[in-house]
């Protein structure tokens, strides 16, 4: 399940882009989920571990991926860490929900991410509640973050 800690929280990796740059492994990039996330969010195609084709920037390395995709890759590959997922835009939300279907992941959010109009299952750790849509999530999370 996707578990969220809203607001500031000790021990969280607050700058995922820096953490990614210094810790990422080649195989994280070529993993099928990473390829799909990179294609969906950055509109870029993974050629090999260290080469990605961006329609805007041309050939780039993983270090030039968007902050959102870097954070998603970290969340997927470092389950022992909690990352500040406010580095992710709303276009990353469906991937967080997707990851949460297969395993328990815990993220930190300092803003109200929009998880869309559909139903989902998200655990809010601050209040020990499970919510199933944005209508349930916003009144709870909105009292903690803006």
């Amino acid at each position: 399940m996707l578990k969220i800690i809203f607001g500031e929280c000790a021990g969280v990796v607050t700058n995922p882009a820096v953490y990614f740059k210094n810790t990422y492994e080649d195989e994280w990039i070529t993993d099928e989920m990473s390829r799909n996330m990179i294609l969906d969010i950055d509109k870029s195609t993974v050629i090999s571990e260290r080469i990605i084709e961006s329609p805007v920037l041309g050939g780039i390395t993983p270090k030039e991926l968007s902050g959102g995709v870097k954070t998603l890759i970290l969340i997927n590959n470092c389950p022992d860490k909690i990352f500040n997922a406010s580095a992710c835009g709303d276009n990353c939300a469906k991937w967080l929900l997707e990851m949460g279907k297969n395993k328990d992941i815990t993220i930190n959010l300092r803003h109200l991410m929009d998880f869309g109009n559909g139903d989902f299952e998200v655990y809010i750790q601050n209040t020990d509640q499970v919510v199933h849509n944005m209508r349930e999530l916003v009144p709870i999370a909105g009292t903690i973050v803006r």
Binding site: A17, I41, D42, K43, V56, L57, S66, G67, G68, V69, A87, C88, G89, D90, N91, C92
Partner: peptide, 11 residues
């Protein structure tokens, strides 16, 4: 400045 990922804010 805010919005979706990969729109070019950090760039």
């Amino acid at each position: 400045l805010k919005g979706n990922s990969a729109t070019g804010k950090t760039t």
